[in-house]
Amino acid sequence: MSETQANNPLHGITLEMILNQLVAHYGWEKLGREIEIRCFNLDPSIASSLKFLRRTPWARERVESLYVHMLNVKARQN
């Protein structure tokens, strides 16, 4: 099992950490264009976004997917 987790970029990372890094990298405006959900486009905040993402599996999957994509792009740039 530890072998599987070693290759999982989301292991040990909280949803709040993911969201904070995405906002720092993209900003709310671009994040709202990448993933069109109201909590990113109308009066965005970490708290409201976390509440929505924790209740909405499809949105959380898209956020996690964008995070992994961001990590891959950063790794290729280095």
Rank of each mutant, 00 (worst) to 15 (best):
E29R: 07
V23P: 00
R38T: 14
A47N: 14
F40R: 07
L50P: 09
R76A: 01
A24Y: 00
E34W: 01
R33T: 08
V63N: 04
K51F: 14
L31G: 06
H25Y: 02
H69D: 07
L66H: 08
L22D: 00
W28D: 06
L42H: 13
R54V: 10
M70L: 12
L71E: 03
N8M: 08
L31D: 06
H11M: 10
I13T: 12
D43P: 07
L71M: 11
Q77E: 08
T4K: 13
K74R: 11
A47S: 15
G27K: 02
W58R: 15
H25S: 03
S45Y: 08
I35S: 08
A24R: 00
L15K: 05
V68S: 08
L10C: 09
A6F: 06
S45H: 07
I46V: 15
T4G: 05
R38M: 10
R33F: 03
K51P: 08
E3W: 09
L42W: 09
C39W: 05
G27A: 01
M1F: 11
M1A: 14
C39N: 10
E36F: 05
R60A: 12
K51C: 14
L15Y: 03
C39V: 15
N20C: 03
M17H: 06
G12W: 05
R62K: 12
N41R: 15
T56C: 12
W28L: 05
N20I: 02
W58S: 14
R54S: 15
E3Q: 14
N8V: 09
Q77H: 03
W58F: 12
S48D: 11
I35C: 07
K51L: 15
T14E: 06
E29S: 08
P9K: 10
I37F: 09
F52Q: 12
E34L: 14
T4A: 14
K30R: 11
V68C: 11
Q5F: 12
Q5V: 11
I18T: 03
A6Y: 06
I46L: 13
L50C: 13
Q5W: 09
I18C: 04
K51D: 15
V63F: 03
M70R: 06
A6Q: 13
S49M: 09
I35Q: 06
M17C: 02
R60D: 08
H25V: 00
Q77I: 05
S48N: 13
N41Y: 03
E29H: 06
C39Y: 10
S2R: 12
A75F: 01
S65N: 10
L53Q: 13
V63Q: 04
E64F: 03
M70C: 07
R60S: 08
L42P: 02
M17S: 11
H25L: 03
R38H: 11
K30S: 06
K51H: 14
N20Y: 00
L22K: 00
R33G: 02
N7P: 01
I37L: 10
L22Q: 00
Y67L: 01
L22C: 01
R33M: 07
G27I: 01
S48Y: 06
K74E: 08
I46D: 11
E36W: 04
L31E: 04
H25M: 00
T14K: 08
R33W: 01
W58N: 14
S45P: 09
M17Y: 02
A47C: 10
T14W: 04
L53M: 13
T14G: 09
L19G: 05
N72R: 13
S65W: 00
E36A: 10
